[in-house]
């Protein structure tokens, strides 16, 4: 038998073996058996020594050619097998992607703070600074500087918790306004958010503790139109571009003229619904031009400066915004309630 025949026999057997192979592991064995150091091709190469010098180059060429062919066959098979195995692995790794899993808790800030932050974003973007002050406050700042002298009947409307004759739990965040006017030169543009207290028993719409945000602007040329413009911007930012304000005459001791402000009902957009009791308007805040007497008491000359102030009840706008019917839910902290917020 000659080399050519041997190579043909090896090749034929290799083809047969490759054809029946299923796994890359077995392919490695076949590869070693033919192309390995102790493989059949190496054996043939070693046997070249027995050939004559004239026969050797041709035989060597034959063997090298065969080696190239065999390697190509094996690589081809290997690629096929690898692709098949990868496909198989991926098939086995498939998940039931619809299988439910427990989610981690999302977490959320308190709805009142969520709404407060929206309000703050709106006013801070208009150049308002945020000011805070003590919740336990001097009568002087909470009442007297705001044109509510002792025994003024309007004090009764704000049933006050007293610590002693001169110290109260603040009934509004207005004392922060008074403190700011006393300590800062105009132009003043502040909003004062915070907790306030009134001696009201707890029920669905009352609470002895609640939150307000008040605003104050003092400058040389401030008009009631600027007040309306500012509140229009607030209403549109918070509730949408189609929201309008309606000013109604009102009375507060610290402003003159004063107004109650209604917004277009953000539930029905003015058509009339349950939320707005069919009127298309929702009463949201009180405001007015700072009473010159207040300016004077706070050390500002009312012939030079004017300004406006407004106050918003955060509980009220939070309850309206989310359709909360009972204020107590806000203070119970039940996760069945809080988990609905995001």
């Amino acid at each position: 038998m000659g080399i050519r025949e041997d190579l043909e026999a090896i090749g034929a057997q290799l083809k047969e073996e490759l054809a029946s192979l299923e796994m890359t592991k077995a392919l490695e064995e076949v590869k070693v058996k033919v192309l390995g150091k102790k493989g059949t091709l190496s054996g043939l190469l070693r046997s070249l020594g027995q050939l004559s010098a004239e026969e050797r180059p041709a035989a060597g060429q034959l063997i090298n050619k065969a080696k190239e062919d065999f390697t190509a066959w094996i690589e081809e098979k290997q690629a096929i097998l690898e692709a098949k195995e990868k496909e198989e692995r991926l098939r086995k790794e498939a998940l039931d992607v619809t299988e439910p899993r427990d989610l981690p808790c999302e977490g959320a800030e308190h709805p009142i703070n969520a709404v407060l932050n929206q309000v703050l974003d709106c006013f801070t973007s208009m150049g308002f600074e945020v000011a805070e002050g003590p919740q336990i406050e001097l009568d002087h700042y909470n009442f007297e500087l705001l044109n509510l002298p002792k025994n003024h009947p309007a004090r009764d409307a704000q049933d006050t918790f007293y610590v002693d004759d001169n110290i109260v739990l603040r009934t509004h965040t207005s004392p922060v306004q008074a403190r700011t006017m006393l300590s800062k030169k105009p132009p003043i543009r502040i909003v004062c958010p915070g907790r306030v207290f009134r001696a009201d028993e707890v029920d669905a719409t009352h609470s002895p503790v609640f939150h307000q945000i008040e605003g104050l602007v003092i400058d040389k040329d401030v008009t009631m139109g600027d007040l309306r413009g500012t509140l229009d911007a607030f209403a549109k930012r918070l509730y949408g571009d189609d929201i309008e304000t309606r000013f109604r005459p009102s009375f507060f001791p610290f402003t003159e003229p004063s107004a109650e402000v209604d917004l277009t009902c953000f539930n029905c957009h003015g058509k009339g619904c349950k939320v707005c009791k069919g009127t298309g308007w929702i009463e949201v805040l009180g405001c007015g031009m700072v009473n010159p007497k207040v300016l004077e008491m706070c050390g500002l000359d009312p012939s030079v400066y004017s300004g406006f102030a407004f106050g918003i009840g955060l509980e009220r706008i939070t309850m309206l915004r989310y359709g909360i019917k009972d204020m107590r839910l806000l203070y119970e902290g039940d996760l069945r309630f809080l988990r609905q917020f995001r």
Partner: peptide, 17 residues
């Protein structure tokens, strides 16, 4: 009749403390 006008004059820096 109250118009809707924007604040004029020097704008404070604004923002949260």
């Amino acid at each position: 009749l109250i118009p809707s006008t924007r604040l004029r004059g020097e704008t404070p820096m604004g923002g949260k403390n």
